[in-house]
Design a protein around this nucleic acid. Structure first.
Length: 609
RNA sequence: GCCAACUUAGCUCAGUGGUAGAGCAAUGGUUUUGUAAACCAUCGGUCGUCGGUUCAAAUCCGACAGUUGGCUCCA
């Protein structure tokens, strides 16, 4: 998998800012109003910057003698309200560098002085003033503070100055704003709804997974219902990959230090790996104080797979070789980065490595891409973005391996595949892995968080480090290209995402409990048991509700449990050899002969519809 | 890792220094019921852990652990 790619912190050009949407403009103005309100309440506050974001806006403050808490929000909001009532004009003005500097120094705004230094020589230095509040700002803004009619402060957090963890942290106030109160209200309601879909909440309610302090942070325990999801996903992946000519391998969860030195992950990636197990075998047994042997838990599967490639001589006739494994990896993520299933320390990856010749590359890459699209269709995944990360020619030999020809060749091929398939993508220079370009697939959880859920990377460097070769038609040695791909990402993140995507209402083929049979009275218990046995014999996950509740209670519990399909059976159904079908969230589907229902469900499961 | 908040029964939450509470769930019984909650009873907690202050701590203080919101980093 990829090395961490640094997001370049770039100042947006004036042109970019002018492209601000109307909503962003409103929110940016709201940030100014919030800063002005904070200055009225805490005149000693030092300001950094206040841009619009996807959900609203924020402004960063340094205020050593006061910690913002949500209790401050009403006072700040009231002051903001006052400022909107005062209806100041947002007035733009230009200052010379000296004037700007003098202004901020006299107002004791040291961050603004530093930000001033970022503006290239010769570029206009523009200010926006609304009432008594003046800010270094390229704009644009709404006309007047009174145009901001609906806003709300959301939370307070801290953020490193300029996003660099070496810098001190500022207090960041987050808020949001909308053109009117109705839209704001609707957004707040939608946020509440999104909370109900949180995978951590549904995971607990549906008993999909759990965490335990004694097991360790970021180490999920998959409960029986969650394990069903995992196994269904694996079944899908194995079928799909088998049809696409993959072969499966299995590798250990750890390896000696020497392999990670060979791969280049050590010492570079060491921070992200669990610390090594160190020991020596002596006549008395294992001595942990000696450090002769060092084993690491694997943080990626690539090196193990490379070793399988190199285990036997390979010919061009063997290529492409597609080695697939649901490999378990361990990454020592920083404690603060952990988040439910979306960010964990042990993960199972839908991994595969495709070794191919340069001539085969485009077809292989296209096939991988098609596999992504096939999966997205199965899961009804509409909103995603392909991020195509390329290298920066200026940094060849430093951040990127010095193979200008291979970079150009593979990037051109990837670009062509993307264009031909008509997929929406953005190209991000300077974010490739050191060994080649990559495509990450970003999706958005219902809560609006953005996640990279799948990845597809080209590697023309590491196979060489491992000395991987195949014999060409001309009977010469050549290094294969390698495609790392993980269309279903990791079980942890993918299932975390699916839980929120479906709000726990999984399609029949995945549903942990596909069918629950609800007898109306005890008289039907035997008939119900018979049905359960019949469906289980066909591989359908069916259970019986043998409780003493009335039918309304049984239905309610099955709905709450998000059981996909309910069979209600009373005397009528028993006599007719039928079941009354009810689907989760869809209500009564009518009484049908049992055999017909069984066939229809089996068909639906088969189709993964 | 950093900043902040939080941690009471399986779950959701009350309880601000004086004998631990509710609803749901669970268990037992009664009920035999036709498409989102039948009735009664019972069980269930060293109040995250360890230490401190106090006659007395769920409550005040400290350390640690975990979780959450952000930052940094990523599948």
């Amino acid at each position: 998998m990829s090395e961490p790619a640094k997001q370049p912190v770039e100042r947006k050009s004036l042109d970019d800012r002018n492209r601000m949407t109307e909503l962003e403009r409103l929110r940016h103005s709201s940030a100014h109003i919030m800063a002005a309100a904070v200055l009225r309440l805490w005149p000693e506050a030092m300001l950094d910057i206040g841009p619009p974001t996807e959900e609203g806006f924020y402004y960063d403050f340094d205020l050593p003698n006061h910690r913002f808490t949500p209790e401050d929000f009403p006072a700040i909001e009231a002051e903001m309200k006052k400022i909107t009532k005062e209806n100041h004009v947002f007035e733009k003005s230009l200052k010379t560098r000296e004037e700007a500097l003098a202004w901020f120094q006299s107002h004791n705004q040291k961050f603004k002085v530093e930000r001033l230094g970022d503006i290239p020589e010769g570029e206009a230095i523009s200010f926006f003033q609304s009432g008594e509040f003046t800010d270094l700002c390229a704009g644009p803004h709404v006309m007047r503070t009174g145009n901001v009619k609906a806003f709300k402060l959301l939370r307070v957090a801290s953020a490193y100055y300029r996003g660099n963890e070496k810098n001190p942290q500022l207090q960041r106030l987050y808020g949001t704003a909308f053109p009117n109160k109705i839209e704001l209200e609707a957004w707040l309601v939608a946020q509440e709804e999104a909370k109900k879909r949180d995978h951590r909440k549904i995971g607990r309610e549906m008993e999909l997974f759990t965490f335990d302090e004694d097991v360790g942070p970021g180490l999920p325990l998959w409960m029986p219902n969650g394990t069903v999801l995992i196994e269904e996903l694996e079944k899908l992946a194995k079928e799909t990959e088998f049809a696409a000519g993959y072969v499966r391998v299995r590798t250990p969860h750890l390896a000696r230090e020497s392999m990670y030195k060979l791969s280049g992950h050590l010492p570079y990636y060491a921070d992200s790996m669990f610390p090594p197990m160190e020991m020596a075998e002596t006549a008395e047994g294992v001595d942990l104080t000696q450090k002769k042997e060092r084993y690491y838990l694997k943080a990626m599967n690539c090196p193990h797979h490379h070793k399988i490639f190199s285990a036997v001589p390979r010919s061009y006739r063997d290529l492409p070789l597609r080695l697939a494994e649901y490999g378990t990896c361990y990454r020592y993520e920083q404690s603060g980065e952990l988040m439910g299933l979306m960010r964990v320390r042990s993960m199972q990856m839908n991994d595969a490595h495709i070794y191919c010749t340069p001539e085969q590359f485009a077809d292989e890459f296209r096939a991988v891409n098609d596999m992504y699209l096939k999966y997205f269709k199965i899961f009804g995944l509409g909103k995603y973005l392909m991020r195509f990360s390329t290298h920066d020619p200026a940094r060849l030999g430093q951040k990127f391996v010095n193979e200008p020809e291979l970079w150009k060749q593979t990037e051109d091929m990837v670009r062509r595949v993307l264009q031909e398939s008509g997929i929406e993508y953005i190209e991000v220079p300077n974010e490739a892995a050191f060994y080649g370009p990559k495509i990450d697939v970003q999706v958005w959880s219902v809560a609006g968080r953005e996640f990279t859920i799948a990845t597809n990377q080209v590697d023309f460097a590491v196979p060489r480090r491992f000395g991987l070769v195949y014999t060409t038609r001309e009977n010469k040695d050549a290094t294969p290209l390698c495609i790392h791909r993980a269309p279903l990402g990791t079980h942890e993140r993918f299932i975390g995402f699916l839980i929120e995507h479906y709000a726990g209402n999984f399609p029949l083929w995945m549903a942990p409990e596909q069918v629950r049979v609800l007898p109306i009275t005890d008289q039907q218990n035997d008939y119900a048991r018979q049905i359960v046995a019949e469906y289980r014999a066909h591989g359908v996950r069916a259970t019986l509700d043998g409780s003493s509740d009335k039918i309304g209670g049984k239905i309610r519990r099955a709905e709450v449990d998000k059981v996909n399909t309910m069979f209600i059976v009373g005397q009528k159904e028993q006599e007719a050899g039928a079941v009354a079908v009810r689907r989760h969230g869809k209500g009564d589907q009518g009484v049908k002969p049992n055999a017909e229902v069984l066939n229809a469900l089996l068909e639906e499961i088969q189709q993964r519809a």
